[in-house]
Write a protein that binds this DNA or RNA. Structure first.
Lengths: 230, 230
DNA sequence: TATAGTTTTCTGTGATCACAGATGTCAATT
DNA sequence: AATTGACATCTGTGATCACAGAAAACTATA
């Protein structure tokens, strides 16, 4: 009994280091940080109310994953991707997130499916309400729920790494698209419900295809935006 | 001119942190660390002749990549994989290392090909000489040269992450196999030269197929060994 | 007024120390 | 003799400080 309690208590050990890491990761994955944004350890430490130490380790971890870059004596920067790197990342994202969607279709049980339906509905209602920040937040929650449903730590790790590099590259384009191409989002929501239904009936091939089509469309929009003269 | 010198000097900035990271990464990728091996920060710091600080950051980075695991107050351990994780890693390794081989076939120039021929020959001669440590070392060098020839930072990053988790899982099996199944290695060398020749003639599909077959055979051997009662 | 040289400030890096939690040792107790 | 308790030792975590390098600001010079 005492052992069970201890096991529960040990589920997650909170460290300032981990807190800083999660915070930065969330900031990257949610698109709050764009390429070129510069940070400093002391500034981040002040924001967290801690010393530089925990922030340092968090930044080091993210730098190891190429999500941040540390400039010798000039701060920390969110790196920009060149065209080749971006293409490589898209290729792998499309494959891995397609894989994860297919696996989700194979592994998802009834509870997971109904949870996904709720999340997809939440995205759509947020879109109708016109709250763009809320749309992005809930959309992110929806997609990660699918990837978690794939029940593969490895897949999740690889997708996280690619997304942390990819999302900042997309956010500027995304902001433009939100203003100019609301039609794109409507289609994306249609894909969402089609994806959930494919998962619901265990159709792995369809789930992969829908997710990959969705990602490719998004990639093309992002590329188109980047090609524009500013 | 002074700028050129500065640019050269800036190519790589040596930090103790990076030194410790590279050292541990090499140890993991070369199979010198097996699952269950425990380390401590102070011990590693003593070995490097530095303070705990650089080692800490290196370990944190590797822990973020799931190559090491830090136990709260009980040291650092090389994690063991369960069957599901191992299967997932194999699946992704086979895909990504196949991708990399195919890309190497598309991108490799004459110099790279002749370098690969040399490295493949070096593996074979080390095998005939019977120096097992040397075989593994040169084999590793050969394979990474192919992956570098793929000219994709992203692919290389993902392969590194998967290999750091996978190699320790394989080493115990590998040691057994070296003793009992030398025939396996002979076949592996044949695959090596076939792979190099596929790359030389720019046959991406063949390069992928050969690499994937090679990896699958190795995976099957490792699994077979793990299934044995000890 | 423009430019070259100096200084000041800010950066990440590394060392040292204090601390709390977990483990293992050893003795006292039943 | 087995078990429980206290204690010593080990661990990673976090804070504080010193330092060298790079950029920026400032000053003196032409």
């Amino acid at each position: 009994m005492a052992q069970a309690v201890a096991a529960l208590a040990r589920v997650e050990r909170v460290t300032l280091n981990g807190l800083a890491y999660d915070g930065l990761k969330r900031a990257l994955l949610s698109g709050r940080l764009e390429p070129g944004t510069t940070l400093t350890l002391r500034q981040l430490a002040d924001e967290l109310g801690t010393s530089m130490m925990p922030v340092r380790e968090a930044v080091t971890r993210l730098a190891a994953e190429n999500a941040l870059a540390v400039l010798p004596n000039r701060g920390i920067v969110v790196p920009a991707l060149d065209a080749n790197e971006a293409a490589d990342i898209w290729e792998q994202r499309i494959r891995l997130e397609g894989d994860a969607s297919a696996r989700a279709a194979r592994h998802a049980d009834g509870d997971t499916v109904s949870r996904l339906r709720e999340l997809a509905a939440a995205v759509e209602s947020a879109a109708h309400a016109g709250d763009l920040h809320d749309v992005l937040e809930r959309n992110s929650e929806f997609q990660w729920s699918i990837y978690r449903a794939a029940q593969s730590r490895v897949l999740l790790q690889l997708i996280e790494i690619l997304r942390m590099q990819s999302v900042p590259h997309c956010t500027a384009a995304l902001r433009v698209l939100i203003g100019e191409r609301p039609a794109y989002f409507a289609r994306s929501f249609h894909n969402h419900s089609a994806l959930v239904e494919a998962i619901a009936r265990g159709d792995a091939a369809a789930a992969r295809r829908i997710k990959q089509t969705d990602l490719k469309e998004f990639r093309d929009f992002v590329n188109e935006t980047h090609r524009r003269p500013r």
